[in-house]
Amino acid sequence: MTTLDALADELRFADDAMRLEILLDYAGRLPPLPEQYHALRDAGLNRVDECQAPVFLMVDVVDGKVKILADVPEEAPTARSFVALLLEAFNDQPPSVVAEAPPDILHRLGLTGLLGMQRTRGLSAIYQRIKHEVARKAEASR
C-alpha cells in the first residue's frame, strides 16, 4: 500500500465533518517555501493557472526521488491542504509512485462530494501538473 492509498483511506472513510478536520490539519502542515524561491513565486512563475488562488509548484526529480516545493496562500485552505497531502504522499518517493497514482484522486479522497463539481477543477489541475512535471523530470534525468 502506498502512502497515498493510506491517506486516501483516511479521508474516504471519514464523514464530511471529519474530512474538513483532516483537511484543516493538512492545511496547517504545508512546509513554508524556502526563502530563495520567494522571488520566483512573486514573479508569478511556476504558477498553476487553473487555480484562482496563486498556487506555486516546483517539481524536480533528484537522485531518483521526487522533490516538490509548493506555496499556497492561507486564504485558500482547501488547495493548501490538498497540496500538503500530495507532498506527504510523493516527496522522496521514486517517480513511479507518482506515475502509478490513480487519475481519479479527488474521487478517491472523497472530495468530489464535499466540494461539488464547481470547486474540483483547480485541484485536478494541481494534481495533473505534478504528474506531468514528475514524468518530464524523470525522463530528463534518465
Partner: peptide, 25 residues
C-alpha cells in the same frame, strides 16, 4: 465562502457557516 475550508481556519466569534454547495444547493 467560496472555499469550503476557510471558515474552519478561523471565523468571526459566534459566526456560523453556510456553504453554497453543501447547504444551499
Amino acid at each position: 465562502d467560496e472555499d469550503v475550508l476557510l471558515y474552519e481556519t478561523g471565523h468571526i466569534p459566534n459566526a456560523v457557516k453556510i456553504d453554497w454547495v453543501n447547504d444551499l444547493q
